[in-house]
């Protein structure tokens, strides 16, 4: 693999004043190489979304550095952000709120191009719609005319508009039905194959993350508790918390799920026993 595209070092994000503030991210370091997918997985409050937002300039960076192609990109002006925007894009969780309901699909897709001063417009919109498998005549329609899965495809097209090097995918499939979820993941993987884009993939679902990642970082309470090869983290986790996550996610296979359940209860009982011994 090539060298690091994105380097996060000792990232700290704190909200609120000096006193009574809340530290959401503490000393997180992470690298993303070109064309790979790194996932952040964790439960609510783990800070996974905040890391994505910090990279995008949507959350304040209190400490540490975020470097993209060796250039610092945290706490930069909106002007410089516009340059970075060509390379770092985003897909949000909620495809309903992420598309302005009063704009046509075409104007939504043209917006990033305009912001960057590109004027090829319509032909590019066609290309983008085609790339995400949407009918070419979608441009003149409004977001409400589309289903959740279709809207997410449009959001993906918007992210692709500038041919970015990195896309931050913030729970892009969580709001979708399971069949749609699978199709969107396939689309993301195909696009990566075609364009060589790198994904920072954020999810609460270890299964989804396993399906798409090269590497996985497990977050808890604003810290990375485990990071490593996707297959290893998802199937043979080292950290007890990851293990808990792994055993908690139910799978659609009754006999094996029964076995997993028993295993989970055994681990929990063992932990409890250990807890009482150390206490």
């Amino acid at each position: 693999m090539s060298e690091n595209l994105l380097e996060i070092k000792d990232l700290v994000v704190r909200y609120g004043g000096r006193r009574g503030g809340k530290t959401v991210i503490e000393d997180v370091s992470l690298n993303l190489r070109a064309g790979e997918t790194v996932s952040l997985v964790g439960e609510s409050g783990s800070g996974k979304t905040t890391i994505g937002r910090a990279i995008l300039g949507l959350a304040p960076v209190t400490g540490g550095t975020i470097r993209f192609r060796d250039q610092e990109i945290s706490n930069i002006s909106r002007q410089r952000r516009r340059q970075v925007a060509r390379d770092i894009q985003v897909i949000f969780q909620d495809p309903y709120s992420s598309l302005n309901p009063s704009m046509t699909i075409e104007s939504i897709l043209v917006e990033p191009l305009r912001a960057a001063g590109v004027s090829e417009g319509k032909t590019r919109v066609r290309e983008l719609l085609d790339a995400v498998g949407m009918p070419g005549d979608s441009g003149s329609r409004y977001p409400r005319e589309f289903s959740g899965g279709q809207r997410q495809r449009i959001a993906i097209a918007r992210a692709l508009a500038m041919d970015p090097a990195v896309i931050v995918c913030d729970e892009p499939t969580s709001a979708l039905d399971v069949t749609t979820q699978a199709r969107v993941l396939t689309l993301l993987r195909d696009l990566q194959k075609d364009t060589g884009v790198a994904y920072l993939f954020i999810s609460h679902d270890l299964g989804v993350v396993h399906a798409i990642s090269d590497r996985i970082a497990v977050l808890r309470g604003g810290r990375i508790v485990e990071i490593g090869d996707a297959h290893q983290v998802a199937t043979a986790p080292q950290h007890p918390y990851t293990r808990q996550l792994q055993m908690s996610a139910p799978i659609a296979d009754p006999p094996r799920q029964r076995a997993r359940r028993a295993e989970r209860l055994r681990i929990l009982a063992a932990d409890r026993l250990e807890g009482t011994e150390t206490a």
Partner: peptide, 17 residues
């Protein structure tokens, strides 16, 4: 707080825009 505003920021639109 709508995500499309965040998306516009990420794209680099100015506040006035």
């Amino acid at each position: 707080s709508e995500l499309y505003i965040d998306a516009a920021k990420v794209v680099g639109l100015s506040d006035a825009r």
